[in-house]
Structures are given as structure tokens and as C-alpha cells.
């Protein structure tokens, strides 16, 4: 259908509501029908998709409950063993789970429900890893040594996803109450905060997302007051040079 006579302007008003999941069911079906035929609406949706992705990333991070990961992986491992017909020994994972698993008790799982993705953006993936190894990643990206500031032992991994990337920390020591981790990106002389604050879990892992890695020369992480700050107030626990 021609873009000139398909009512694009009227439908375009519905696009943001569509992306936010705010159309009524009847409107949704009609809009999706239009979307199939309208290159302009699809292009606008692709352009706005990173904004939609930034919405959940803006949520203040809270610590994962201690038992959630254990329960989930126990379920996954059990299904994986079933998948290979019991050929694989399950003792290793069961042993790793140990008393923690038995002490928590099992909570029932409801059946999985398939759900559609909202995001429409096409993400070209280029992965690279920054760790302690100092060797070349088998994944084709650079593997560099993390320069830890006041927190030696912290391992940082940056996984690129399209324009942005996710920053994963390990071996982070507990931070004081009322404090959060805040990531920063440096471009030239300019240092700006990453939007999503985060905190380490009980096992010392912490993750945040950098929405735009274009031109970033260094990623840093500092410990800041809850709510974050607009400029770093402490020495970085991680300083990660990003390959250009």
C-alpha cells in the first residue's frame, strides 16, 4: 500500500502507545495490520525502539533474592538432564547446589507462557570481553586487563549489543547501606553517568547497561550515594579502557 494513502499520519499518533503496550486490544490488531503495510511507521518504530528499551533500564536496581538463582538453575538443570535422556550425570550440579537448595525448599513453577517481544530494533551484535586474562578472545573481540582502582579482584565484562552494551562485574565486595554502584562513560574529556544504577548481589555480581557505547573510550564504576550523582564522588573500583 502506498504511504501516501494509507493514513500514516493518523496511525503515527498511535505508535508510542503501541510500543508502550497501551493500545486497547481492538486498536492493537488494527495498528499491527497497518504496521505491516507502512514503511514509515516501521521506520519510526525502529528509531524509537532504543527509547523504549531505556525505560526498563531506568528502574533502580534491587538485589536478587538469594535463592532465586539457585531455584531457577535447579529447574533448568533438571530439564537439561531430562533433555539428554539421563545420559548426563546430574550429580555435579546437585552437589553444587548442596544444602542451600535443600534448605530453601522447592517452590512450584507454573507452566511457561509464550510472550511476544515489544522491541523492534535490529541489533547488530559485536561481542567483546574484558577480563583478567590479557589474551585474545576466541570470540574475535579484544580481551584486555581490567584496571581496578580501589577494588582489586573485580572482574569486568562488557558485552556489546548493537549501539550499547551490558557491563557485568564479578567479585564485587558488599557496599554500605545507602550506597549504589554507578557507571560512567568517558568520551574525550567528558565523563557522563550511565542511567541505570546497580548493586552487587550476595555473590558479588552486578550488572548494568550502557545504552550508547559510540565513542566511549573508558567505562568506570564508582560507589555513590543512593540515587546516584551527576559526577563521580569517589575513586573508581573499575576502570575499563574500551578498544576503539
Amino acid at each position: 500500500m502506498s504511504e501516501m494513502n494509507n493514513g500514516h499520519e493518523r496511525w503515527s499518533e498511535e505508535l508510542a502507545a503501541y510500543m508502550l503496550g497501551a493500545l486497547e486490544p481492538a486498536e492493537l490488531a488494527a495498528f499491527e495490520q497497518h504496521l505491516e503495510d507502512c514503511d514509515r511507521c516501521r521506520a519510526e518504530a525502529r528509531w524509537l525502539a532504543p527509547a523504549l528499551q531505556a525505560v526498563p533500564e531506568s528502574v533502580e536496581r534491587v538485589e536478587l533474592p538469594a535463592g532465586l538463582r539457585t531455584r531457577l538453575m535447579a529447574e533448568v538443570q533438571a530439564e537439561a538432564e531430562h533433555h539428554v535422556g539421563g545420559a548426563r550425570s546430574g550429580g555435579g550440579w546437585r552437589r553444587r547446589l548442596g544444602d542451600l537448595w535443600r534448605g530453601e525448599g522447592r517452590r512450584g513453577l507454573r507452566p511457561a507462557i509464550g510472550l511476544a517481544a515489544l522491541a523492534l530494533v535490529v541489533a547488530a551484535i559485536a561481542g567483546y570481553v574484558v577480563g583478567n586474562g590479557g589474551s585474545t578472545s576466541p570470540n574475535g573481540g579484544g580481551q584486555l586487563t581490567v584496571e581496578s582502582g580501589h577494588a582489586p579482584g573485580v572482574v569486568a565484562t562488557m558485552v556489546r549489543e548493537g549501539q550499547g552494551g551490558s557491563l557485568h562485574l564479578r567479585n564485587v565486595r558488599p557496599i554500605p547501606d545507602g550506597r549504589v554502584l554507578e557507571a560512567w562513560v568517558q568520551r574525550g574529556d567528558k565523563v557522563t553517568p550511565v542511567r541505570a544504577l546497580f548493586v552487587p548481589d550476595r555473590e558479588g555480581r552486578a550488572t548494568t547497561t550502557v545504552a550508547n557505547m559510540d565513542g566511549v573510550e573508558t567505562v568506570m564504576v564508582t560507589v555513590e550515594p543512593a540515587g546516584g550523582t551527576e559526577a563521580p564522588t569517589s575513586a573508581p573500583i573499575v576502570t575499563m579502557p574500551i578498544p576503539g
Partner: peptide, 18 residues
């Protein structure tokens, strides 16, 4: 389907919908 977005966006959309 990587043509529909990043894994993270897909994952969070599933969590959000649920």
C-alpha cells in the same frame, strides 16, 4: 529472533508482560 531486537530487550519485554 534477532531481527526483532536485542536479547536483553526481548528478555525484559517478556518479564514486563508477565
Amino acid at each position: 529472533d534477532r531481527a526483532r531486537g536485542s536479547v536483553r530487550a526481548w528478555t525484559l519485554s517478556i518479564v514486563r508482560n508477565r
